[in-house]
């Protein structure tokens, strides 16, 4: 009997130790990769949003949800973000639509729409209200069915960080172990979307006798339109001149913590997308590499661009019965 008690006691202690030890592993912090996905801002309509109103209805509120599914802006980039929500697609003589302050445009708050991060893996969400007022429908009109179009125009930034292999002596005949190498002096790196609607898709590295050349492919992954950055505050319902579209600025390209020597188009200039795809390249002199050993280091590319995205919503306005 005594032995049984001892045995049970030992069993309980061992079980507690096992649970305690396995539980502690779960408390280890894990790194969250938040620069993923190909979305930026998005418009959705909460359930219960009215789709039918009546003649002479005044100040009907339609809720609209704006979500930031991308990775920009981070908390230290809030001042760089600009975004607007617009409404169009209706006859202003029949229907009056506006956001607060009576405008068809609503400036978005960057603090409420902070991008996904280690602390906020969902991204910011904000609920806006569209206010509708209907006058008299013309005589004989039983129903008026406009399709409202909600536009988001915003400034965005995508940052790609690609680990690349730097081999300062790719043609050396010396035998030595290398942490990485380039077959035939070139390598192609595929890059997943970086938390924005525009991003780098591939990087090709070519090492010549005196230069390292990086060739970049970029793509508009999203369903919206890349627009000139200074058109973000312009009314998208008026349309955009085709010459102002599909231009992405190469803000920065860094290998480790140093900038590349030059690019074509150059840093600060714009790459033009054709059918949603663009290309540019940058070079770095081999002589500027301090190490004699091969090593991997992040190649960081920062792209900035304006983006216009739209969402449609049908609404029915019915004739009121007058008694």
């Amino acid at each position: 009997m005594e032995q049984k008690r001892v045995f049970l006691g030992v069993l309980v202690i061992v079980s507690l130790l096992i649970i305690g030890c396995s539980g502690s592993k779960g408390n280890q912090p894990t790194a969250v990769e938040f620069r993923t996905g190909s979305s930026g801002l998005d418009v959705t309509f909460p359930s219960g949003t009215p789709q039918q109103i009546f003649e002479n209805d005044i100040d009907v509120r339609i809720p609209i949800q704006v979500e930031n599914k991308g990775a920009f802006p981070q908390f230290d980039e809030l001042s760089e973000f600009t975004g607007f929500l617009w409404v169009g697609g209706y006859d202003p003589n029949i229907l009056q639509a506006s956001f607060e302050q009576g405008d068809i445009r609503k400036q978005l708050d960057p603090e409420e729409l902070e991008g996904r991060s280690s602390f906020n893996q969902q991204g910011g969400v904000v609920l806006e209200s569209l206010i509708l007022s209907v006058g008299d429908l013309p005589l004989g009109t039983a129903v008026y069915e406009p399709t409202l179009i909600f536009y988001l125009t915003y400034l965005y930034k995508s940052i790609a960080s690609v680990p690349v292999c730097i081999d300062p002596e790719p043609r050396s005949i010396n035998v030595k172990d290398k942490v990485c190498s380039l077959t035939d002096f070139r390598k192609i790196y595929s890059v997943a979307p970086q938390g924005g609607p525009v991003g780098i898709t591939n990087v090709e590295e070519i090492i010549t006798s005196n230069q390292i050349i990086f060739k970049f492919d970029l793509q508009n992954f999203g369903t919206g339109q890349v627009i000139a950055r200074d058109l973000v505050s312009s009314n998208p319902n008026e349309g955009f001149d085709w010459r102002d579209l599909n231009r992405v600025q190469i803000e920065d390209v860094r290998l480790g913590d140093r900038s590349v020597d030059k690019c074509k188009p150059d840093l600060g200039e714009e790459v033009e997308l054709f059918q949603g795809i663009g290309h540019f390249q940058c070079t770095l002199s081999v002589a500027s590499i301090a190490s004699a050993q091969a090593y991997t280091t992040p190649l960081t590319v920062t792209l900035t661009y304006g983006y216009a995205q739209s969402q449609f919503r049908n609404i029915k306005i019915l004739e009121a019965i007058e008694i």
Binding site: T147, Q225, D241, F312
Partner: peptide
């Protein structure tokens, strides 16, 4: 009295880029 809903497109040739609601 007839009151069909008609679409008014101020850019019929599509010179300017934008999404159209009708």
């Amino acid at each position: 009295f007839a009151s069909p809903n008609v679409c008014i497109d101020t850019d019929p040739f599509g010179i300017r880029e934008n999404k159209k609601s009708c």
